[in-house]
């Protein structure tokens, strides 16, 4: 009997691993917001802070510097970014460890637009991203950076990006796992070689493509 309970739990756990993602998305839809914020299966973001605390920056004080192998190094304010052409995306946010949040709304300016604004110099190969948390870093190849669904996001979930979600401005790399979407974006440096980012130094793939991702400008894996 005890053995039966034990192996029953193990079997139930295994079934949960294999079919849990289907159950979870149904539970999440059934619960809706509110309850879903605390209960498992409620499609909630898990918040990672790799430094001591969340860097709190106001929209007013926010600056994004773009430097390195560019024609016209620049520093953009929040208002500068908002004045640029905006794109909207609605995608499932998928963490490499498994958790995910369906139908997340994003708005911001295409990274490719920012790169056009500053102008790339010959020899530029990749981008390195820094965060206001002074710990997290990320990288993209230039080809990846030019995908139409890679944006510098200024709005998320239908409002300004909150501090815990990496606001006021963060990267959103839609065709890749969540860790590529660096929070509290402070600087973009155009460099001549890929510099693996923070999570990549812990063994996460540098090219963190989602399985079956469908990016519009380039086929995954061509970068």
């Amino acid at each position: 009997m005890g053995r039966r309970v034990f192996f029953g739990m193990v079997a139930l756990g295994a079934a949960g691993v294999v079919f849990g993602s289907t159950v979870q998305s149904r539970v999440g839809r059934a619960l809706g917001p509110g309850l879903a914020d605390v209960l498992p299966g409620g499609n909630l973001f898990q918040i990672y802070s790799v430094s001591d605390t969340f860097p709190a920056i106001s929209q007013h004080a926010y600056r994004l510097s773009v430097s390195g192998l560019v024609e016209r190094p620049a520093t953009f304010t929040f208002a500068d970014l908002e004045a640029m052409p905006q794109v909207r995306l609605v995608r499932t946010f998928q963490c490499v460890t498994g958790w995910r949040v369906p139908d997340v709304h994003w708005e911001g300016v295409r990274l490719s637009h920012l790169l056009e604004t500053v102008g790339l110099r010959p020899g530029s190969v990749a981008l390195a991203f820094d965060s206001y948390d002074r710990v997290d870093t990320e990288s993209l190849t230039l080809e990846q950076a030019h995908l139409s669904d890679v944006i510098v996001a200024t709005r998320m979930l239908g409002g300004p990006i909150t501090t815990e979600h990496g606001g006021p401005v963060r990267l959103y790399v839609a065709p890749m796992f969540g860790y590529k979407s660096l929070k509290w974006l402070s600087a973009i440096r155009v460099v001549d070689a890929v510099e693996p980012g923070y999570w990549e130094q812990y063994g996460y793939p540098v090219n963190g493509w989602l399985e079956g991702s469908t990016s519009t400008t380039l086929a995954p894996g061509s970068a």
Binding site: G16, V17, G20, V23, Q24, G98
Partner: peptide, 8 residues
């Protein structure tokens, strides 16, 4: 499976 494992 990762999503399912997280859920369980």
């Amino acid at each position: 499976w990762r999503t399912g494992a997280t859920f369980v």
